[in-house]
Design a protein around this nucleic acid. Structure first.
Length: 323
DNA sequence: AAAATTTGCAACCGCACGCCA
DNA sequence: CTGGCGTGCGGTTGCAAATTT
């Protein structure tokens, strides 16, 4: 028995996305906005299941996504947040605008885990993974602990009426991932999305040796590391060298270049309406604001860098205070 | 230079959750 | 209240690229 698959497997394509598919998806979302994923494959003719479409959008095509090259700052945040929240990548991602949960999860699993285990396997390799020793084992317990923690802090905040409002990046973000559950908001949101896809395309064309559709994963990776390389101007380059006779592509690029002319991708990303759009989301606000104080404290103390251990200790001490 | 091994990441899978009729 | 449906989330896998032998 069990739950039937989200989509019948016959005729459903799997594996890396091709630029053509990306274009179709983006241009569809450009028109209709994200959401109602179930209908996306039917309406676009994509031979993908709805989940796959959503994933592709949220992890790659969504506007304002930054890929690769985690900064020290981000790294520390992830470490700290992981200590606080456990493997709740979506929650962690909500503190890191422009980063997806998948990206963070991958980065944690591939880089940070090792890094930390090296760090902590010094004299006595007890603290595996950094700080898990102080955490409940099960996901459920951990979640519970976090929630209690959050609730307590929220209470404290409420009582002190001293709410931080100005955290630089305090964007509730993607806990509900979509700024646009409503019809579809600012078109400029898609500018950066178009940037994303323009990057994909550009790199795809560069490597557009016969392999073409080939390893989209490869092209994706390249593009992902080239955020700086592909700006608005380069996307129009992409338009010129376009070999894909796709109208959607043209419209995308023109759309793109008209909206983000002089901005780099990152700039665009930073200014993306997401930031403001997200700010109304009460649920994630609840979630974000609570540990924010801790994070803020840590972030703003960052200059005084005492090293990760101190950060870790801080979080653990904080936990101790609350329990 | 070629083969073997490791690494990194995109994408898939399946369960959980929330909404709605 | 309950069951169906759509979506979100975290764990895992598969494969290409990078590195080592």
């Amino acid at each position: 028995m069990g739950r039937p698959p989200c989509c019948d497997k016959v005729g459903v394509k799997k594996g890396p996305w091709t630029p053509e598919e990306d274009i179709i998806l983006v241009s569809y979302i450009q028109e209709h906005g994200p959401g109602n994923w179930r209908s996306v494959p039917t309406n676009t003719g994509l031979l993908r299941c709805s989940k796959s479409c959503r994933l592709r959008w949220t992890n790659y095509l969504r506007p304002g996504i930054k890929r690769g090259n985690f900064t020290d700052h981000e790294e520390k945040m992830i470490i700290h947040l992981q200590a606080l929240l456990g493997n709740r990548w979506a929650a962690i991602a909500s503190y890191l605008p422009q980063r997806t949960d998948n990206d963070i999860k991958n980065y944690w699993n591939t880089h940070l885990k090792k890094k930390l285990s090296k760090l902590n396997s010094g004299p006595d390799g007890q603290k595996q993974d950094g700080f898990s020793s102080s955490q409940p084992k099960g996901q459920w317990e951990r979640r519970l602990q976090t929630d209690i923690h959050m609730a307590k802090q929220a209470l404290c905040e409420a009582l002190s009426l001293d709410k931080p409002t100005q955290l630089p990046d305090s964007k509730p973000s993607n806990s509900s991932h979509h700024p646009f559950t409503k019809p579809y908001q600012a078109s400029s949101t898609y500018a950066s999305s178009a940037d994303n896809i323009a990057r994909l395309l550009e790199n795809w064309k560069k490597s557009s040796s016969p392999k073409s559709a080939q390893t989209n994963s490869g092209t994706t990776q390249n593009s992902s590391n080239n955020n700086l390389g592909a700006t608005g101007s380069s996307s129009s380059e992409g338009a010129q060298s376009a070999t894909t006779p796709d109208q959607a592509f043209d419209s995308l690029l023109s759309f793109n270049s008209s909206t983000s002319e002089s901005m780099s991708v990152d700039e665009t990303a930073n200014l993306t309406p997401e930031t403001s759009l997200f700010q109304d989301e009460s649920k994630s606000n609840m979630e974000t604001q609570v540990p924010l104080q801790l994070i803020e404290k840590w972030l703003f103390d960052d200059g005084t860098t005492q090293g990760q251990d101190d950060l870790i200790n801080m979080s653990l001490e904080d936990n101790a205070v609350f329990f």
